[in-house]
Simulated scan of single mutants.
Amino acid sequence: MDTINLPGFSRPILLNDILWLKGEATYTRIYYKDGSHAIVTKPLNYFSQHSTFIRVHRSIMVNSMYVHGLIQGKPRSLKLQLSTGTLLDVSRPYYQLLGDLFPSK
């Protein structure tokens, strides 16, 4: 199992436990499978070294193993649905990449 060492945590975190990430300046908010979240003092780009995470927005990365699919909203609007039902906005620069990787609903 792949893990990641994060400041403020005494042990490595399993990548499989992380659903998605939200960048907040030089911090990142981590959302876990169990519904909890934490903030770490690492920028969002720190997590791009792991191929598990895919950027879908300037400030959002998702764990690719929990992506359920894409949902076409209003014209020129795309949302990514996680297996938990969470919907996340996808910004236009990532439409093509995500459309190639995941099926549209």
Rank of each mutant, 00 (worst) to 15 (best):
Gln81Pro: 00
Thr52Tyr: 10
Ile30Glu: 00
Trp20Asp: 00
Gln81Asn: 05
Val56Ser: 12
Arg58Leu: 04
Leu70Tyr: 02
Arg76Pro: 00
Leu80Val: 04
Ile71Gln: 08
Leu88Ser: 01
Lys22Glu: 15
Ile30Tyr: 06
Lys33Ala: 12
Ile71Asn: 03
Asp17Tyr: 06
Ile39Phe: 12
Ser83Leu: 02
Tyr31Cys: 05
Thr3Ile: 08
Ser77His: 05
Trp20Lys: 11
Thr52Cys: 11
Ile71Val: 14
Leu19His: 11
Phe53Ala: 04
Glu24Tyr: 03
Tyr31Pro: 00
Ile54Met: 09
Gly99Phe: 10
Gln72Ile: 00
Thr28Cys: 08
Gly8Ser: 11
Ile30Ser: 08
Ser91Glu: 07
Tyr46Thr: 03
Ser48Leu: 14
Asn63Cys: 07
His37Ile: 01
Asn16Glu: 15
Met61Thr: 03
Gly23Leu: 11
Val56Arg: 00
Val62Cys: 02
Thr28Val: 11
Val90Thr: 04
Arg11Asp: 09
Leu97Glu: 11
Ser51Lys: 14
Asp2Lys: 13
Ser83Arg: 08
Ser91Gly: 12
Lys74Asp: 09
Leu101Pro: 01
Ile4His: 07
Asp17Cys: 03
Thr41Gly: 13
Thr52Lys: 11
Tyr95Asn: 04
Leu19Lys: 02
Tyr95Trp: 12
Thr28Asn: 02
Ile4Leu: 12
His57Gln: 11
Lys74Val: 13
Tyr27Lys: 03
Ile30Cys: 08
Asp89Tyr: 09
Met61His: 07
Leu44Glu: 10
Ser104Asp: 00
Ile4Glu: 04
Asp17Ile: 01
Phe9Asp: 04
Asp34Asn: 10
Ser48His: 09
Pro7Met: 08
His57Asn: 10
Thr86Asn: 04
Val56Ile: 15
His68Gly: 09
Gly23Met: 07
Ser91Asp: 08
Ser77Lys: 03
Gly8Arg: 09
Asn5Ala: 14
Tyr94Gln: 03
Arg92Trp: 06
Leu70Trp: 01
Leu15Pro: 01
Leu14Lys: 07
Leu82Glu: 10
Leu80Asp: 00
Trp20Ala: 02
Thr84Ser: 15
Thr41Asn: 12
Asp89Met: 14
Leu82Gln: 01
Pro12Phe: 11
Gln72Ser: 13
Ile60Leu: 15
Leu87Glu: 08
Lys22Ser: 12
Tyr95Ala: 02
Gly73Met: 08
Thr86Ala: 10
Val62Trp: 06
Leu101Tyr: 14
Lys42Phe: 05
Phe9Cys: 04
Pro93Gly: 12
Lys74Pro: 00
